[in-house]
Design a protein around this nucleic acid. Structure first.
Lengths: 354, 354
DNA sequence: CTGAAAGCGCTTACAG
DNA sequence: CTGAAAGCGCTTACAG
C-alpha cells in the first residue's frame, strides 16, 4: 500500500504537502495539487485511516453493541430497522459503524467500555433494554459521547441525549381506538415489567381507561416479555373471568399479539367478532397474520437515524447541549379489531348460525 | 485517557515493559507484571486500539458493506440472521465488525475499496447480490482477504473462499416434496434471473422434473425479484393456461410465496386444496401466514458464522488455502402443501359443496 | 503556499 | 527479564 511518502517522492514535494492536499483544509497552489493528485492516482494511494485517527484523535466511527446470543432479537423488526436508520445517517456524515457482540447485560457494559477506552469509536449508540440507573451511571463515568435508544429511567438523566418512540402516545392511540369501537373491558399485555417502556405504556393505558371512566380489573394486566409464548400465556391466564372477560387485547409488540391470536383460535374465539387484538410495531409479519393485525407503526429506522445524527453533532460540536426526541407513532388499522358485539347480540347470532 | 507512558511512570518501568505486559507475548517477571497491572488498574488504562493497529498493521476488525437504501433488504430474515452469525464468530475471535452503508452496486465496490485501502479492516465479507465476473475481478485486484457469501459465477473462481446455501439441494428437496404429493404441473418462481442463485435453482428444478419424466411448460417459469408483488404477478401471468394450469408453485423466497398466496386467494383458489404453495427461507413470517407455509430452512446465521470463521483463519494464517462451503438446507412441511386433487374429483367435490 | 520537525500511542528488533 | 530507540503513517503548529 502506497504511503504519503511515496506520493511525495513522486510529486517531488514534502509529505506534509501531500497531507494538506488530502485533508482539504489548507491552501495549496493548483499546480502542486494537480501534481500530488496525479501521483496519488497512479500509485492508487488512499490515506491510511488508522494513522489519521491516531493523529487527529478522531475515528469517524460510531460504536454499537449487539446481544448476539439472544436469537429472538433477530426475529423482530427492531434490530434491522434500527440498523437501516443508523447506516443511513452514518453514511451521510461519512461515518462507519463498529459493532461488537455481547453475551448479556454485564458484558454489554464491558464491551462498550472496551470500544470507547481503546479509542475505536468517537461515540456510541446504546440500545440496551435495561437502561437502569446503574447502567446510565456507568456510561456517564466513561466520559464519552453517547446517545440512548430508549428512555432513561429518571428525571435527573434528562440532561443526556436519547431518542425514543412516544410510547405514551402510541398506547393512547391504541386504547382509544379500541374504546371508539365500543370496547370497555380491555386487556394490556406488556413486555418486561422491569423496563421503562412497559411501565410507561401501562401508565398510558390506565390514564386512557380512567379518562373514559372505565374501571380496570387488575387481572387484565399481564406481561408477555415480548415473545409469542408470552402473549399466548397471557390469554390463558385471563380466561374464566366470566362477564369480566376482556373483549379486546392490546399487546406491546406484534409477536405477543400473534401469541394472543393463537390462544384465541384455540379457545374458539373469532377475531374480531368475539375479541379484538392489537399489536405494536407494524412489523412485516403483522400484515400477514390471520386476520391481519391492527397495530402501531413505530418508526425504528427514524429513531436509529436520529440517534446517529444526534451523536455525530455531539461529537463534532462538543458544546452541543444534549437533546431528547420522542418520535410519533401511527395507528395502522387492519382486520383484527372491530366493533364490540353485545353479549345478547352475540348469543343471538350464535343461535342463528346453529 | 491514560497512556502506556503514564502507567510506566507509575510502575517505575520503561513504557516498552508496559507494552509487553499487555501484549502478553513476552516473558515478564511476576513482580514487574503485578506492579504494571496495579498501576494500569488504578489509572483505568486500556491500550489504544488505534495505536496498536498502526503499529502491528492489524485491526482485528472485519469489514462489511450493506445496501442501506434498499428497504426490502431489512424486511427479510437474510440480513439479521447473517449478522447474528457474523457477530457470533467475530466475538469468539475477539474481532469486531465495521460496517458501511452503500447506495447500490457501484458504490458497494467503492466502499469496499475505501475500507480496505484505508486499512480499517483486516478482511471483508462480501454479500453482494451481484457476484459477477467483474465484481470478483475487482475484489481480487484489491489484493486483500475476502470471503463471499454466495456463489462466484465461474469455475475459475473456485480458488477463492465462499460460503453458500446448497441451493440445488434445497430446490431439489422442494420439488421432490411436491412431486411426492402427486403434483405434475409445478411452477418455478425465481428471484432476479441475473443472479447465480436463481439460475442454479432453476437448473435443479429442471433436473428434478426431467428425472421424474415430467414435461415443463415454459410458462411455468417466472421471476418475482424476491418481493411480494413479484410473486403475486407471477401467478397473474400464469393463469388461463386451462388444463396446463400449475397445481403447485415453488418460490425462491417466502415473500414471493406470500404474494402467491394473495393472488391465489383473489382467484378463489384454496390452498392447499386447489393449489400447493412453497416458499424458501423459513422466515419468521412463514409460520404465521394463512395457511402456514411449507418452506425450506436456509441457515443464514450459520453461513455468516462460517464466512467470518473462514476469513479470520485466512487473516491469521496467510498460508491457508481458500475453501468453499455449501450449507445444507432443510424441508419444513406446513399446511400450504398437500396432495394434488384430480380434476374430476375436484369438480365432484365442488358440486357436493354447492 | 510550502518545508522541517515533533507528536499521536503503541510495538519490537537489538542490546545487555 | 528489561531498557533505549526507531518506526507504523499520518497531522499540524511553527517558520519562512
Amino acid at each position: 500500500m502506497a504511503t504519503i511518502r511515496d506520493v511525495a517522492r513522486k510529486a517531488d514535494v514534502h509529505p506534509s504537502t501531500v497531507s494538506r492536499v488530502f485533508s482539504g483544509k489548507a491552501s495549496i497552489s493548483t499546480a502542486t495539487r494537480r501534481r500530488v493528485l496525479d501521483a496519488a492516482d497512479s500509485l492508487g494511494f488512499q490515506p491510511n485511516a488508522i494513522a489519521v485517527s491516531l493523529s487527529t484523535q478522531k475515528t469517524k466511527t460510531i460504536g454499537m453493541v449487539v446481544p448476539h446470543v439472544f436469537e429472538g432479537f433477530f426475529d423482530d423488526s427492531f434490530f434491522p430497522q434500527l440498523m437501516r436508520g443508523m447506516l443511513d445517517a452514518a453514511y451521510q456524515h461519512e461515518f462507519r459503524l463498529i459493532i461488537s457482540g455481547c453475551q448479556g447485560h454485564q458484558d454489554e457494559i464491558s464491551q462498550i467500555r472496551q470500544i470507547m477506552q481503546s479509542s475505536q469509536a468517537d461515540g456510541i449508540v446504546v440500545m440496551s433494554s435495561r437502561l437502569d440507573v446503574d447502567t446510565i451511571e456507568r456510561l456517564l463515568e466513561l466520559d464519552t459521547p453517547f446517545v440512548l435508544v430508549g428512555h432513561p429511567p429518571k428525571k435527573q438523566f434528562e440532561a443526556i441525549s436519547w431518542v425514543d418512540a412516544d410510547n405514551r402516545l402510541a398506547t393512547r392511540q391504541a386504547i382509544e381506538h379500541l374504546i371508539s369501537l365500543g370496547h370497555r373491558k380491555i386487556a394490556y399485555v406488556g413486555g418486561d415489567p422491569k423496563t421503562f417502556t412497559t411501565r410507561e405504556r401501562q401508565l398510558a393505558y390506565e390514564d386512557v381507561m380512567n379518562a373514559a371512566g372505565l374501571k380496570i380489573n387488575p387481572k387484565w394486566i399481564d406481561y408477555g416479555y415480548f415473545d409469542e409464548p408470552g402473549g399466548y400465556t397471557a390469554v390463558q391466564r385471563m380466561k374464566g373471568l366470566g362477564s369480566e372477560n376482556p373483549t379486546a387485547f392490546y399487546a406491546a409488540n406484534d409477536l405477543m399479539a400473534v401469541g394472543i391470536l393463537r390462544a384465541a383460535s384455540e379457545l374458539g374465539l373469532r377475531v374480531p367478532e368475539d375479541i379484538s387484538v392489537m399489536g405494536t410495531n407494524n412489523s412485516y409479519l403483522s400484515q400477514h397474520t390471520t386476520p391481519p393485525l391492527t397495530t402501531i407503526q413505530v418508526p425504528y429506522a427514524e429513531i436509529g437515524k436520529k440517534a446517529v445524527d444526534l451523536l455525530i453533532t455531539q461529537i463534532t460540536h462538543q458544546d452541543k447541549a444534549p437533546s431528547n426526541y420522542l418520535e410519533d407513532c401511527q395507528l395502522v388499522v387492519r382486520a383484527s379489531t372491530g366493533p364490540v358485539v353485545q353479549a345478547h347480540t352475540r348469543a343471538q347470532s350464535e343461535r342463528a348460525q346453529a
